Amino acid sequence: MPEFQAELVRALPGTLREHSVRRGGKTAYRDARRAVTYRELEERTGRLAGHLARLGERVAVHLGNRVEVVEACLGALRAAAVGVMLNTGASESELAHFLDDSRASVVITEVELLPPVLRLVSTRPGTRVVAVGRGAAARDVLDFEQLAGTDPGCPPRDDLGLDDPAWILYTSGTTGESKGVVSTQRSALWSVAAAYVPAYGLEERDQLLWPLPMFHCYAHSPCLLGVVSVGAGAYLLERGGNVAEALSAGLTEEPFTMVAGVPATYRLLLDSLRRTPATMPSALRVCVTAGAPCPGELKTEVGQVLGAPLLDGYGSTETCGRIAVDRLDALDRLDASDRLDAADPVGGLRDRDSSVPGSHPRPACPPSSSGPRGRCRACRSCGGRPGRAPMTRWTSPGVT
């Protein structure tokens, strides 16, 4: 398989425009409600960006597994705003922390999730709410469909640099309070060019079944950035959906070639097939897992039942993607191991953690750097909070 694909590390708006011309009629994303082609994705995110640019510099995306989560994330990027990915299952107090920590000026959520969002926004003047779903206008909030479907009177900015802050994703909080990790397009796309294409063979013809929450880095990296970068397609399965049923149901025009999950996903899939046998798509060529150690016996059983190898990987929110991955072209040395000793490290990541000898941490921005509306004049790495240490940031080569 090819090694590092440098041409994939480029600003996504240009990639979207190219896909719109070359494969505009192809379905990019689909869920149980609707689908969007690459032409529609480019047009809708462009219109959304024009509207969002007037609303603020931080856009919180509080959406489940649906096409709009992709549109919101790309729309914020095209507005040169920072997209803040939020867990729809977060408690109200957790959500309050995320909004305050990120200083989001816009929250894009679902009509069903509006009550806690509206309560929190009521005490945060200037924060606007955009809702997805029927009845948004009746709740005195902005209607997502209207923003994505109407001309804002200006083109999308599309000028966010590769090394400008593009997204904030929060860690799981297993070692303490969840921390916001700032990623750039370059650092986030690094896993696509260094792991998903070389190790998994991700390409335009692939159809990915994605059953995991889209707010997480594991989803943001391959399902959003990977799929869009190569012009592939993906189906976003609702949280708690049956993966075995989805694989056998023919939910997309083309059969699934890839499925992702965590080890528990595959255990549930195998249990479901034991109870209710079903035919798996013959086009399925690879299964990927991460998030927890994957036992060797699970890899073996998945390979036998699904007819496709299960590749393990290790990553973190701080690295914006993968650190080490199993490779399709190295199955002979993986030998169904439940360890990652045989996995290939993803090259090029640099550790900015000040606790690591030889690293180069960013100093805290001085309080005197505060500009209009309290925003830091010097940079955006401090989260717009002068005097505080910068958010965690791991970067790829070329990021200063």
Rank of each mutant, 00 (worst) to 15 (best):
M214Q: 11
A260F: 13
R393I: 09
H51G: 02
L113P: 00
F144R: 11
A72F: 02
S354K: 03
L208Y: 08
C320M: 15
G358I: 05
V181E: 06
A148G: 09
R393M: 12
R388H: 12
A278Q: 14
S187H: 03
M391E: 15
S337F: 04
E145L: 05
A90R: 00
E301T: 11
A11F: 01
P263T: 03
K26F: 04
G64K: 06
Q185N: 11
V61W: 00
R44L: 06
T276F: 04
R23H: 14
V130M: 06
A79I: 08
V121L: 10
V67A: 11
L120S: 09
G240Q: 09
C73M: 14
A194E: 15
V132C: 09
P363I: 08
P281S: 02
G149L: 13
A234Q: 07
L284S: 04
I108N: 05
K179I: 01
R380M: 13
L147A: 08
G307S: 03
A53T: 07
V141A: 15
S102H: 01
G347I: 04
T109F: 06
C287Q: 05
P309S: 08
A194W: 08
A342F: 13
P198D: 12
W210A: 13
R54Q: 14
R10F: 05
V21S: 15
R78Y: 03
V129C: 12
P295T: 05
Y29H: 09
A308T: 07
R285T: 02
D344N: 07
A234E: 08
P156H: 07
A194C: 12
G126W: 07
V286L: 06
S229K: 08
V399K: 02
E42Q: 12
H220Q: 13
Y196T: 07
G64S: 14
E297Y: 03
L225N: 15
A234T: 08
S370E: 15
P198M: 13
T317Y: 04
V111I: 13
R362H: 14
L120Q: 10
L202F: 15
G64L: 09
D329M: 05
S178D: 01
G180K: 02
